[in-house]
Design a protein around this nucleic acid. Structure first.
Length: 542
RNA sequence: GGUCCCAUCGUCUAGAGGCCUAGGACGAGACCCUCUCAAGGUUUAAACACGAGUUCGAAUCUCGUUGGGAUCACCA
């Protein structure tokens, strides 16, 4: 296309690509990856995986990891979404080496990292394509395009702007000038060189060689708002940002021929690609991709609300991506995530079902590694965001709650593993607070008459300063005196001789002390409640 | 529908022609321990989608069938 027309279409002061080639020199880092979310105000769990994987991959190999904001869809753009992206990433311990650090600030020499600020670069790309007859303006209206699509569907043909349907592909320059004179709006399209009936192998790091037809659709590269489409921006950005590995969602695999074509049109070497299968859920017996609209668990904030520790979520995601992580963790219990040698080749490539049981397990194991103090701090941070009442309670009863959290946790060999999400802890420890405590006589294992009998025998013997062994010995003694076996075996030997076992006696105490039939170590609970409260609660059974 | 991807216990998977009587983890069951629960220990059940080939030999290679998934915009 002649120079004057190119200038008329894209503008006069558009720089040549060589300018950008110089501005963004080749990097020395062997591996450069990025995550490129759209600022839609929603952090999908898939986005998080698409961030965790390239981050681990780059940083484990002394590479560079970038964040790029794909804000070319002005309709979906949401205020504050960039901060959400950055803070979610930070919550996951992911700090990009380059990219935005807030809605307005960024770091790195290969920016801007907001696509909406890179129009100069895109224009240079368009200019190059126009000059080399690899791109052209298209004056089709939406109605025309819709009409064509309808016809194609009616004819059972592939929909799309290709072949004879590509109305402006070979429009003479005079026609373009005429339409320009008339002030007709236009967009830019890429002149696809491929042929649909020719197939070619494309490389994907996880899937290997994939045989796909060449692309023959002249896709839109720059929209009427002057912003690029994903495909075009991807080629330009990942080239000039010197990305070596594009790790992205599976939904892009189908457009790989196009993307390679774009790189080839510019004479550039394409990056390596790894496509990640989507996380799925079971719906009516069928699997499907987690949906932003239907599934709350698609949103990363769901896990935060529930109170899953980020470490657990991250570990679960990594586990999902590279299931050999499990073996690695077993062999390297210290900082496993940082040291794990992430392999793109091992990426799961068929789509995994989200397994909450597994997540719960990982979370439970993680929480078990926390001291009471650490757990308290986490609980407080969580509560401040999601449960104000609890936050207040935590602050007012700091030491008391810490001592509660220490039960079967601090200084023990086998840590109690019953907490798997922060949001459930408050309920678990509620009986420590008088205004939340009550018990139900129905929970007694024996009749009330016997309860009183036992309590009358037990209460006078209660010694608050006894140690755990002494305390339990006393419970057994009381049980024995009241006609209960000291242990189950004793009763099994001679079932007729006993009313029950010490277990029944303990249950009575447990119900009176905690209001439940199941609880952590009773002795520890009594110690924390204190002598007066313990006796008060026990006497309530009389 | 076209195109592409995928196919091992319920779930995530190990598995590169003989190391497979198919291994692990989560989940489920049982037993032990035990004042209850949670743990912990021991343990059981549980899978190569189907059909043809190739081969002395197939979970592994080929083809087909079936099933599932992804994708087909001036959204990313």
């Amino acid at each position: 296309m002649k120079k004057e027309l190119v200038e008329r279409l894209i503008g006069k002061d558009v720089k040549d690509l060589s300018f950008w080639e110089e501005k963004f020199p080749q990097r020395s880092a062997g591996i450069v990856t990025r995550v490129a979310p759209s600022p839609t105000g929603f952090m999908h769990i898939g986005n998080m995986i698409a961030a965790v994987i390239p981050e681990r991959f780059a940083h484990k190999n002394n590479g560079v990891f970038m964040l790029r904001i794909e804000d070319t869809d002005t309709k979906r753009k949401v205020d504050g979404a960039v901060d959400l992206v950055i803070s979610s990433l930070n919550d996951f311990g992911i700090v990009p080496d380059e990219g935005p650090v807030s809605e307005t600030k960024e770091v790195g020499n290969y920016g801007p990292y907001f696509q909406s600020q890179r129009t100069d670069i895109y224009k240079s790309g368009i200019k190059y394509l126009l000059e080399n007859d690899l791109g052209y303006p298209c004056f089709c209206t939406e109605e025309e395009l819709d009409q064509a699509r309808k016809e194609q569907t009616a004819l059972k043909m592939r929909p799309g702007y290709y072949g004879k349907w590509a109305k402006y592909r070979n429009a003479p320059e005079e026609l373009i000038e005429k339409l320009l004179d008339e002030g007709k709006p236009y967009i830019f399209r890429f002149r696809a060189g491929g042929e649909w009936d020719k197939k070619r192998y494309f490389d994907d790091v996880t899937k290997g060689k994939v045989l796909m037809p060449e692309n023959d659709i002249d896709i839109v590269i720059m929209k009427s708002d002057g912003l690029p489409t994903y495909h075009f921006a991807h080629a330009i950005d990942d080239h000039f940002m010197r990305t070596t590995h594009v790790i992205r969602g599976d939904e892009w695999l189908a457009s790989l021929p196009l993307h390679i074509q774009l790189f080839e049109a510019f004479g550039w070497t394409p990056p390596k690609y790894a496509h990640i299968a989507p996380i799925q859920k079971l719906d009516d017996g069928n699997r499907r991709k987690l949906s932003k609209r239907k599934d709350p668990e698609a949103n990363i904030s769901y896990y935060f609300e529930q109170g899953y520790p980020v470490e657990a979520i991250k570990e679960y995601l990594i586990n999902l991506a590279n299931s050999n992580f499990e073996d690695f963790k077993k062999a390297n219990p210290v900082n496993p995530i940082e040291n794990f040698d992430f392999k793109l080749e091992n990426l799961n490539n068929s789509g995994a079902l989200l397994d909450f049981k597994k997540l719960d397990n990982i979370s439970k194991e993680f929480i078990a590694t926390l001291s009471s103090s650490e757990l308290y701090d986490r609980l407080l941070i969580w509560a401040e965001q999601y449960d104000e009442k609890l936050a207040k309670k935590l602050k007012e009863n700091k030491d008391y709650i810490k001592s509660i959290l220490a039960i079967e946790r601090d200084g023990v060999e086998k840590v109690r593993k019953d907490f798997y999400i922060l949001s459930k802890i408050n309920e678990e420890i509620s009986f420590f607070f008088n205004d939340e405590f009550s018990f139900d006589k129905k929970d007694f294992p024996v009749s009330e008459e016997f309860v009183k009998e036992i309590l009358n025998a037990y209460i006078p013997t209660y010694n608050h300063s006894a140690n755990k062994e002494e305390w339990f010995e006393n419970v057994k003694e009381t049980a024995a005196k009241s006609g209960y076996a000291k242990n189950a075996k004793e009763k099994d030997k001679d079932p007729e001789a006993y009313k029950g076992t010490v277990s029944d006696v303990a249950t009575i105490l447990r119900v009176l002390i905690t209001g439940r039939t199941q609880s952590p170590d009773l002795y520890a609970i009594m110690q924390i409640l204190g002598k007066d409260e313990t006796l008060k609660r026990l006497k309530a059974g009389l």
